[in-house]
Structures are given as C-alpha cells and as structure tokens.
Design a binder for these strands. Structure first.
Lengths: 264, 264
DNA sequence: CGACCGTTTGATAGTGCTCAATTCAAGTGG
DNA sequence: CCACTTGAATTGAGCACTATCAAACGGTCG
C-alpha cells in the first residue's frame, strides 16, 4: 500500500545524501534569485518526458516565483482564494481539513517533489490548510498559467491529469486504511509509506526522522496520540523498530509488512 | 458535510419524478441509437458553460457510445486497462478497492450525472472496481478524445480539472468521517449525503430507497454490517427515521444533523 | 534551572466486533 | 398454492480494541 505513489520510479533527487534525514539541511544559495527549472532537483515532476529547449524556457517563466514557509506557518488556509499550485522544493507539510464543528483532521503529509493545492481547483477556494512542519520552500505555479502551458503541451496536460488521478488513488489507500485496519496495522503502513517515499528521494530505506508529532500521526491515522505512542512501544518491545523520539529505525521491515497484511 | 458535492447547484434532471426513487424505472426508448448530448438529461455535466453549436457537435461525436451494465456486473475492474471515463446516465454504482490480502472496501457510491473512471488516468490501469448496483447505463467517454476536445475548449478543460478536484475534496470528507466519527454519526452523515444528492436530482428531500446492502454501507463507512443495522434500529427507536428494508424516511432531519455534529 | 511541550505509561470505561441465533422477504419448484 | 431455499437484516451476549482520564517522564529552550 502506498499513500503517495511517486511519479514513475523517480531517481533520487540530486544533492540529497543517501542517509537519514538531517534536522538542519543546508540550503545556502538555495533561494538565489534565478534558478532555472532544468537545474531544479525535482524537475522530474515538471518535465515528465522529452521537452524541447523552448518548452523548458516557458516552464522557467511559469514557475519563477518561489516562496518560503516557516515551520508552523500556513502555505494556504481553508477558505482562502485559490490561485496557484505549489511544488515543494524542500521541507515538509501537512494538510488539514476542518469540520464545521471545529474538529480538525490531517489528510496527508507532503514532502519534496510533491504538489499542494489541488483541493482549491474545484471551487476556486482552498478547502484545507497546508501547514509547514519544517522551514520549507515551494515553487509557486499560478494555475491559470499552468493551464496555458498545458494547452501548448498536450503531454504536459496529461501529466497534470495523472497527478490529480494519483492523488485520488492515494486517498483510496487512506480510506482503506481508516476503514479496515487496526491501530498496529495503521501505524505499520504509515511507517512503510513514509520510509519508502523518503527512500525514493535518496534517503535511507530503513531509517527516518518523523517531522510530525504523535498527535498529528494519530489525526492522520484516525487514532488518539496515546494509541500511536502505545503502538510505537509495542513495535519496540517486539524488536521490529527502534525509536528515539522522532528518530525511527526499522529493524524488521518484513515484520511491519506482515502486520499490515495480517488480518484478525 | 458532503461526500459528493454536485457541480454547481444543478437543477433537477428532466424527466425524473419529484418523489421517492422507484424500484423499476421505465426506460423505454432510452437506448435509442442516437441521442444527442444536448438532449441528454445530464448535460449540465458535460456543458458547464455557454458552448457554441459547433462545440456541441464535437461533444456529440465524443460520447456517442453508450453502454449498459447489468445489476451486479462490473463496468470495469481493478487492473484492467484504462481507456475512457464513464458518465452515468441512469443507474447506481459502487466503487471498490481491494488490498493485496484480498480485503475489499467500498470507496464510494455513484449515481446519475456522476463520473466514473478517474482512478485509471494515473497508470493507465484501473485501480478499483466499478460495480452496478442496479441496471445502469453510461456514456463512454474515450479519454484521449476527451483530452483533444479539452484542448480545443479551454473552458471545458477547466471543467475536467474541477471534476477531479471535486473528487479529491469529496474523499477528504470521507477521510474525516472514517477518522473521527462514531458509528451513529457515520450513518447519519451517510443518510444526509445520500438524500441530498438524490434531492438535487429531483427526488424527495426526506425519503430514499437504498440501492446497497447493509454490508456495503458498512464497508463504505468502516463498520460491520451488524453495527450498521443496530444504528438503523437506534434511529428508528428514537423516532428520527422510519425504515422498511431499504426504504428510508427521514422524519427528523435536524436530529440527524445534530448526531453528525455532536462530539462526545 | 525551571517551565513547557511532547511523549510515555497505567487504570478504567466505552464502543464496536465476533459469533450465533432468528426473523424477514422474495423467489423456486413440486 | 404452499413448502422450501436463499440471501439479507435484525437482535443478543461476550469480548477485544481503542478512547479517556490521569500521572509521570524527558527533552528543549527561554
């Protein structure tokens, strides 16, 4: 099960160390006024297939604006007007929906090379918050211009359709998790998903640093934070993982898989 | 909360009686070989805004193929190649995802004027089953041709984007339900959603006939069928609804609303 | 160092699941 | 036409799982 199937089997992004996520990633010069899309380390997102030089130029123009979002700050909030999609360059986000009664729930966690904002297309207003869980920066992609570019590049248009379809399929997986798995299976699936997504970005395949609290994990998984904590402790007791605060080492990946697929 | 926000506030489809769903709807002549899109009773889906005569002609060509699906049969199945979207003309469907371990879960119920197949765009293969819960017929919309038409009609392109975004937002609502509501609130929300969607199609606003079993409702809501049945009984005892098999009358809509929004 | 936030752990209660028995509705065939 | 079959729905009893409430612990940062 994957909560965020990557676009194709994207190679690890350049410049990222093939090891565990570091708390403070150096980003000196990262926000220099002019970084072309073709030198961006997530360009597989924007340029799915062969694109001519002229086309790349258009793309450069399209997403020349970037934005920093401080940890804890919102990239956008529910109710705000929708104007652009956001491609995450570096950092980590959560998306949160809120019910009328004030109750909130995390609907997903997003990392580099993933896209935020698709929820706003429908009504031209965002329907969830996008909150940075660490200092992040994103490419701002004005949606009107994106549609123009897509119009000129059918293959790019298809890529946008695929991106939205992928999000729909991802949410199917989450629904399956929320509707049919028990607490231990939910957390196991969550850990597998996170480490896989990080691995595809060049990080370790068995080690990760969580960017969110137990409460946020619980909100996403439909559990209370105490239950999340208990499941972590259970996995540690069973020797399946090692946990030091938010640093998690997966010792027995197969055991995690078995828990996900084991039915009561 | 809505699990399937309609495209704008669409007027009731023509030809549908403004009363409870009938078990056997007459559809004599419905599948006559040539029914133009502009006489189709769900054309608000296809033609969001002013469209010229020529444009309507293109559209007619696009979706001239229709398909009947018998109750219990699959419109498509997970793993099958994706080639088209399907606009439901009449009938009722469920979509079902299946985990590797064989476990299945209903991810949604679809009725007339709603679209099936968006899950297949991503990988060119469907990732869920679409099963008819009653004899249905659908317009087959070849996706390649749809993209061509969208290319010629930017406003139509936008409509497709909105449709996909709407599905993403709908699934957020389901995640909220599955992640944070108790059994009674889930069923109450489900009933409200169903009756609202039917009402927007010209049916009663307080009475409905369910097309799915208790087990299918439970699968969608993340509950066991016995729990669904018990919640029905509870609502009946409390005088909120009346139930005769799959025929449901909502006596106290406000009470249902209160149950959805009431937090423990 | 102390305050605070996040996390862990324990005890208890509630909610929904499991297993099982009936009831009900709608066919089906003698 | 009625006994029989079948699938769906209801209802009950006991239990498993997760939430709740509460307390203690630990790391971080002013």
């Amino acid at each position: 099960m994957s909560f965020n199937s990557q676009p194709h089997a994207s190679p690890p992004a350049t410049g990222l160390p093939s090891q565990v996520v570091s708390f403070q990633s150096s980003r000196a010069g990262y926000l220099a006024p002019r970084i072309a899309c073709n030198t961006c380390n997530m360009h597989e997102l924007c340029m799915p297939v062969g694109m001519s030089f002229e086309e790349v130029e258009k793309l450069n123009e399209l997403i020349s604006v970037r934005k920093r979002v401080k940890r804890g700050a919102a990239l956008y909030r529910s109710g705000e007007e929708f104007s652009a999609l956001y491609a995450i360059r570096t950092g980590f986000f959560k998306t949160v929906v809120n019910a009328e009664d004030g109750h909130e729930q995390v609907t997903g966690f997003q990392m580099a090379a993933e896209v935020l904002g698709l929820d706003g297309i429908n009504t031209n207003r965002h329907t969830c918050h996008a909150i940075a869980l660490e200092d992040s920066d994103v490419c701002v992609v004005p949606f009107g211009k994106l549609e123009e570019l897509a119009h000129d590049l059918p293959v790019f248009q298809r890529q946008i359709h695929r991106m939205m379809s992928r999000e729909i399929v991802r949410e199917h997986s989450v629904m399956l998790l929320l509707g049919s798995m028990r607490a231990d299976a939910r957390l196991a699936a969550f850990l597998i998903d996170m480490v896989q997504r990080l691995h595809s970005r060049g990080y370790s395949s068995h080690e990760l640093v969580l960017r969110m609290t137990r409460e946020e994990i619980g909100s996403f998984l439909g559990l209370k934070l105490e239950t999340v904590s208990r499941m972590f402790s259970k996995f540690v007791e069973e020797g399946i993982i090692e946990v030091k605060q938010r640093h998690v080492v997966i010792v027995e990946p197969e055991a995690l898989n078995a828990i996900v697929h084991h039915h009561p």
